[in-house]
Simulated scan of single mutants.
Amino acid sequence: MSLDAADASEITGRTRVLGILAHPIEHVKAPPGINRIARERRKDAVMVPMNVTPDDLPELVRSLRKLRSFDGAIVTVPHKQAILALCDELTPHARAVGAVNILRREADGQLVGGQLDGVGFVEGLRSQGTNIEGKSVYLVGAGGAASAVAFAMAEARASRITLSNRSTDKIVDLRERLLSIYPDVEVALGTPDASGHDIVINGTTLGMKSGDPLPLDVRTLTSSMTVAEVIMEPEVTPLLKTARNAGCTIHFGKHMLNCQLQLMADFMGL
Rank of each mutant, 00 (worst) to 15 (best):
T222D: 13
I181E: 13
R95T: 10
T226L: 09
L90I: 02
E186T: 15
N35M: 08
I201Y: 02
G207E: 06
N165E: 04
A188H: 08
G120P: 03
I102C: 05
L178T: 03
G129P: 02
P192E: 01
V187R: 06
E186D: 15
G190Y: 02
E235A: 14
G33H: 14
S147W: 05
P24V: 08
S2R: 14
I250T: 15
A148K: 01
V230N: 00
V100R: 01
L163G: 01
L263M: 11
L18Q: 09
T53N: 06
G109Y: 03
D108F: 03
I74W: 11
E233H: 15
G134R: 03
E106D: 13
I132W: 04
V48L: 12
S210F: 13
V227R: 02
A99H: 01
D71H: 13
I83V: 11
I132G: 09
G196A: 10
V236G: 00
M264W: 09
A142E: 06
S159P: 00
M208H: 07
I34W: 11
M47W: 07
L84R: 06
T204Y: 07
F151T: 00
A107T: 13
T12Q: 10
G13R: 12
V140M: 12
T162D: 06
P78V: 08
G203C: 07
R166K: 12
G124P: 00
V137R: 00
L60S: 02
E229A: 06
D198C: 07
N131F: 12
A150G: 01
R41L: 09
R105V: 11
I250L: 08
M225I: 03
N51C: 13
D217H: 06
R157H: 14
G109R: 03
L139F: 03
L270E: 04
T53K: 07
V52S: 06
Q262T: 15
A156Y: 10
I181A: 12
E59D: 13
G247P: 04
R68A: 11
A22T: 14
Q262K: 12
A158L: 00
I201L: 10
F252L: 14
E106W: 06
A246D: 09
I11Y: 10
G120K: 02
H79M: 07
G253L: 02
P78R: 04
P31V: 05
V187D: 09
A148V: 01
Q110R: 15
P213K: 06
L18C: 10
K29A: 11
S63C: 12
S210C: 07
A142Y: 11
V227P: 00
A5Y: 15
M47C: 09
